[in-house]
Amino acid sequence: MSTVTDVRTYRGFFTVTVLCLVILYAPLAVVTVYSFNASASITVWEGLSLRWYSDVFTGPESAKFKQAAINSFSIALIAASVATAIAVTAATAIVRGGRFWLRLPSLGLITLPIMVPEIVLAVATLIFFNAIGFTRGYLTILVAHIAFCIPFAYLPIQARMQGIDDTYEQAAMDLYASRAQAFRRVLLPLMMPGIISGFLLAFIVSLDDFIITNFVKGAGVETLPTAIFGSVKQGIKPNIMAISTMLLGVSVVMVTISYVVSKWDNTK
């Protein structure tokens, strides 16, 4: 398109976009490349090797990282599932419950975990478990994750639900479906892309969390981020880069699924 007649585009914006992407991707690209370095030093390049990947699974720290990975993924799976179920019920009440005085307070409460800075939530949760005398460990991490995952699961579900015309449920009820049947047979299938997005977002947020986990984990219970953090404090080692690259892979897979789901349309 001619730049004379085109009023939409601005010269220079493309350059800035490229710069933006370079800043976003350069660190990740560098770490990915260096994770395949054969050298034991992180500064010298000695050629391609999968040495550090096998070190992750068989090296001296492998047991620690394996346990941390099991903890991380099991917590993310449970927390995201529970948070998604809670979010679906809450969204149904808020989007389809008519006007009621608890509507705004409910929305406020649900979004509270993203309003409060993470470090504050971490402190508050630690203090809470301390005050009620709950021993810190796997369970405290899980409970804290369920709570702060709720808004991340909720927002995509609410957005999807608001886009669904309520005449669909009315039509179902007009055709003799009870409320429960209308929910299960009509509303739930139509909400499914939102539910999957919400679940994936909650899952990744749980997997991602360092600060809250670091506060509420007991001695000896580690997730991947806390284990990596502990290791990095003593300097970046090549095996950390291998783990990082694998986690990067997990993220890319998740975001791809989420992208496909957002395009997926069960109405065609």
Partner: peptide, 28 residues
């Protein structure tokens, strides 16, 4: 506002209120 599930809304809200009151609001 859409109100197809208005009659069940208190039950539907209960899990989120319980979790968030106990594990977010109370801690703060």
């Amino acid at each position: 506002a859409s109100q197809t599930f208005a009659s069940a809304r208190n039950w539907l809200l209960m899990p989120s209120w319980a979790v968030l009151l106990v594990f977010v609001a109370a801690p703060v």
